[in-house]
Amino acid sequence: MFMSSDIATPGTTPERHIVQPGDAQHPIVLSTEDLHVFYGDKEALSEGDLKFARNQITALIGASGSGKSTFLRSLNRMNDRIATVKGRIMYRGVDINQPDIDVYEMRRRIGMVFQRPNPFAKSIYDNIAFALRLRGITAKNKLDEIVETSLRQAALWDQVKDELDKSALALSGGQAQRLCIARAIAVKPDVLLLDEPASALDPVSTSQLEDTLLKLKQHYTIIIVTHNMQQAARISEYTAFFNQGRVLEYDTTSQIFTNPQVQVTSDYVSGNFG
């Protein structure tokens, strides 16, 4: 197999195309440097260095097995137990991939929402409040306030405000996922990582979730893995395209979808992939 760089001539498509995101209003909050992820001996991510701008939504797209979820889960070290992550993960100037970083403190700043809604077997209220209680916030009025703002930000407040004592396991899929978002933002994170948060939801819930994310970006830096290209196009400012454990293209979302520079990206976004 030829490497694409071998056959590329000036003026035709490059092998990789990476831009620097961010500006004065949207400084870089999180970036990776020389990141490599291994599952055992197998390298799952080799060239995956990206920078993420504050208060923007960045979408990570690519086929399954392309390394996008591996990348995302490395960012707040959720993969520590199953993978070896080498390289630096710079969060506001601090490398959080050092062994003496307190991962629990770090994960309160870099929160995560998963593919399948995973509400705890507790009441709606306690789903949000219990992690706060463990961190020393016990005053009832303070808890009430955080629960309400979190639920409002996640656009769930109006639907559940009268049944906060109800078990969260009784919620519908879309509501449960928004509860998980509320739960994640209740600890006041800085960055929010979302791993295909809408893949288990119906179209209506999906579109509500997207509205919620668009509102949330004024408070948080959001990185979202999605296999749904329309979704990436609808909500994100920047998009990164992953292929076989490498980032091939990283640019503004409109560029990626209207004028991709790399041939494989072009094939993928136009549906001619595989």
Binding site: Y91, R92, G93, V94, I96, D100, I101, D102, V103, Y104, E105, M106, L134, R135, G136
Partner: peptide, 22 residues
């Protein structure tokens, strides 16, 4: 906004969660 040094110190302080874990 905190300086990176301040932040690093905060992130390296052993949290209650880490103590509970041990």
């Amino acid at each position: 906004t905190k300086s990176p040094e301040q932040l690093e110190q905060e992130l390296k302080r052993r949290s209650k969660a880490a103590k509970l874990e041990i």
